[in-house]
């Protein structure tokens, strides 16, 4: 699953610090530091609008250091989060995706306070639409398509549900577009400018789109969930949708909640409370524009 990743956590090697920078990405505070300055610069360029001067409380701390290896060996980069090595990026072009992975890993496994559902989230008319999908089934692409149409963006990766209210809180990370969807960038008018591409291991090349590149005021805020879509992408398919029962939706959501085991019975109750006020569908997506039309027809 993780190219070049170490499966045995070990302490990050000490190195000369190149500085530390701080970001508030929706409700997720992040600090990025280490001795590999280009990585810090890349991340800061992508999240310039979310940078803070002072460290926010409870930061997810990510460090990037070149691995301590013999000079004759190919260079690689250690990406640590929370003081523990998480990944080894095999080339400089894969460091930024690994920083993102490290943040997502912490959110999914140990960050407190939210039920972390693996889903894209957008908002329209004060209510969120969740798109839960297996990897490579168009979650981020569909999210991007809707945001480009003027919907507000909460995340392309996590629906962070606050337990007491069931509302979804924003984690507006840069939208990750994989190589198979690069043509979509042309369709959406997002292919211009100095776009950078990165290597995300087995997932191939990726690029990142900032929500602000889609439209002004694209970032959404805290809101209740109005609809839940379970998505599967079929190339060339006519987009179609069928209603699913709310009980079925709860069962499916437990399967895609990363930290469900921390909540267990309470998680079931929370997800049930969320879907009671939502419409739930199974969505087969195909052409992006037609799929967005279909989603808009039910969400309004």
């Amino acid at each position: 699953m993780l190219v070049g990743a170490s499966v045995e956590p070990r302490r990050a090697a000490p190195a000369t610090d190149a500085g530390e920078r701080y970001f508030q990405i929706g409700v997720v505070p992040v600090s990025v530091g280490g001795s590999y300055a280009p990585a810090i610069g890349d991340f800061a360029a992508l999240y310039a609008e979310q940078e803070c001067q002072r460290p926010p409380t409870g930061c997810i701390d990510v460090r990037v250091n070149p691995s301590a290896r013999a000079a004759a060996l190919p260079r690689r980069y250690d990406v640590a989060a929370g003081g523990t090595d998480r990944f080894h990026a095999l080339r400089s072009s894969s460091v930024l995706p690994h920083i993102e992975w490290a943040i997502n890993w912490e959110l999914a496994t140990s960050w407190p306070g939210y039920l972390a559902v693996h889903a894209g989230v957008v908002e329209r008319n004060g209510r969120a639409a969740l798109f839960a999908a297996p990897p490579q089934h168009g979650k981020s692409t569909l999210t991007l398509g809707l945001v480009r149409r003027g919907w507000r963006y909460l995340s392309d990766e996590f629906a962070l549900l606050e337990p007491s209210s069931g509302h979804v809180h924003p984690y507006p990370k840069a939208i990750c577009v994989k190589e198979g969807s690069f043509t979509v960038l042309n369709e959406l008018g997002l292919s211009g400018g100095a776009r950078r591409f990165y290597d995300k291991g087995k997932k191939g090349r990726v690029t990142f789109v900032r929500p602000s590149d889609c439209h002004e005021g694209a970032q959404g805020g805290v809101c209740p969930i109005g609809s839940v879509f379970f998505c599967r992408y079929e190339p060339g398919a006519v987009p179609r949708m069928t209603a699913v029962s709310r009980a079925d939706a709860v069962l499916r959501l437990t399967r895609v909640t990363f930290n469900f085991r921390k909540y267990r019975a309470r998680g079931v109750e929370l997800l049930a409370d969320v879907v009671r006020n939502a419409e739930c569908y199974e969505l087969t997506s195909g052409d992006l524009s037609r799929t967005c039309d279909l989603v808009a027809s039910v969400v309004g």
């Binding site: 029962s245 709310r246 009980a247 709860v250 267990r264 079931v268 049930a272 009671r276």
Partner: peptide, 22 residues
């Protein structure tokens, strides 16, 4: 745990950490 939703229900067995839909 039994959580009714509309005419159906979701059950959660804490012993086996398994969720069911009825």
């Amino acid at each position: 745990l039994c959580v009714p939703i509309d005419d159906e229900a979701v059950l959660y067995d804490h012993v086996t950490d398994t969720t069911f839909r009825l």
